[in-house]
Design a binder for these strands. Sequence first.
RNA 1: GCGCCUGUGGCUCAAUGGAUAGAGCAUCGGACUUCGGAUCCGACGGUUGGGGGUUCGAGUCCCUCCAGGCGCGCCA
Length: 573
Amino acid sequence: MNRNFEEIAAGTLAEALDKLKAAGGVPDDFEPKIVIERPKNPDFGDFGCALPMLMCKATRTAPAICGRNLMDKIQAPPGIFDEISFAPPGYINFRVSPTAWFEGLQAVCDIPDVGHGQKVLLEFVSANPTGPLHAGHARGAVLGDIVARLMKVAGYEVETEYLLNDVGNQMAMLGLSIFYRGRQALGLASEVDFPENGYRGDYIREIAARFVSGQEGRDFCAASYPEGAGRDDNPAVRFAAGLLTEEIRKTLDCLAIRFDHWFSERSLHDSGRVAFLVNRLLESGAAYRTDDGAILFSMEGDEDGEDRVVVRGNGVPTYFAADIAYHDEKARRGYDRLINIWGADHHGYIPRVRAAMGALGHSPSMLDVILVQMVTLTRNGEVVPMGKRLGRFVTLQDLVDEVGADAVRFIYIMRRADAQMEFDLELAKQKTMDNPVYYVQYGHARVASIVRKATGMGYQVPSFSPDLLSSLTLPEELALVKDLCRFPGIVAQSAANCEPHHVCFFLMELCKGFHSYYTKYKSSERVVSDDRDKTLARLYLVSRIKSVLGYGLGLLGVTAPEEMRCEGTDVES
RNA sequence: GCGCCUGUGGCUCAAUGGAUAGAGCAUCGGACUUCGGAUCCGACGGUUGGGGGUUCGAGUCCCUCCAGGCGCGCCA
């Protein structure tokens, strides 16, 4: 039984309002949106609504009068609210009975269905396989993975996808870089031959060395680099991209991120889909050919949008062309909604993708783009330069190895996506013990420890029974019960809005409440005591906290340890 | 020049248009005979970048200015 107190309160108010309308006290066309909120000050109650304020204008009476009138008509369903009261200047407040709250504990990990089976494709990371993932990719990767996890439990049918940009100039440059490093390894070229814009990372040398250790690689590097269509599709490119893709996959795996689909951009070219759709755009007039033979997509409907090149003058389609085909493909696969997570530097790209979808008969509004702002990586306060071509960057793998997957995930997801953030490597390592993720994990381990202790003494965690409540008389215990009951709503809302940071903050607050309760009563009212009834009741509460912490951490993809040991610290013994 | 994002205590960040703007870190002062001190309690700290506007009510919405970041390619 999942009781939604907000809905009940809203329904109660709506009924009272209807009665006032019927009595002629309120105009019939007054249809306010009844918003139930949680007052910051607990003295006001558990839920509140500013409906009397909204009624003022429609009725042309003071909010206090509106409130009184409303109060006269309110008939709440029995057994839920202990108190419903008017509070100046114009609020109606509801206090839920402890019994009703306590019953909510049974459903504390049942997330309400807000997705209603909506089919969603979530695309993220999608970095070029021209090098390892770097620290800058972490944010989008973690956000995408956690949004997917949240949406799944909130009733969405989510699939995740990584688009491999395995076509184009950057792939050609990858092949060329491998080619020259291979020639160097074979003694056929010197450093001065290396292309100016080539990828200079050490990983290129390593891959090239492996490439020329085989006969095909040696033959390839001994010949001249292919021109034309072979520039970005040849043995060197395929060899390097294959290895790099595998490395990307492994790094993501270390971060507990696994994709449902890996989609190859090349497949859209090979199948002729790109060319087919460009033709369709030409036929429909959405695109046109210029004098020099290029094909441009018309952004006419867009306010200040310039027309965008789809096919170059030399006949080679642009990335935009492939992306048009890709989004068409995604739309045709039967999803209700497409969500892309892009770096903020791609924001200018959104209108043209939407426009192209519209031109192909899809609804542009089915595409949502979550922009993640840049992360400045610093070490001891100094900005770490990032750039694949220079080969000087902190790889995501390094980051995970240094800081740990749990901390990386938690730190990146704590912030709203649309705010820039700074991530200092040394700080993240030095302050490991102050890291919020450890605070929550410690809370889980501590709760687990209590359950362990109790079961070691022969207790069993009881299942729900209303009788247990009579032993939970401390105000902090009721506060914990209320907090726990907030969890399903927090998850559902975070999923619906793609804002997972709320889950982090909730878990930290829950831990704080528990730690505080624990410390305050550790010498008087312990969980495990001589009083059997109290012990069982508190054991039930504690086990619910453990469930929520464990479930919540699981949604964040962070481990929930049963125990934590102090290791590597200089604690005096 | 145009566009997108951001501006909240010393620092990092919260706050579905609602009641007294909240946490953590840092600083200072406290708390352990028994379930994990990786904890807890308290203090200090704010004109929510400035100015207008909408509203019964604005950190939140609109306008404008200032500051920072990112875009504006026949790169991907």
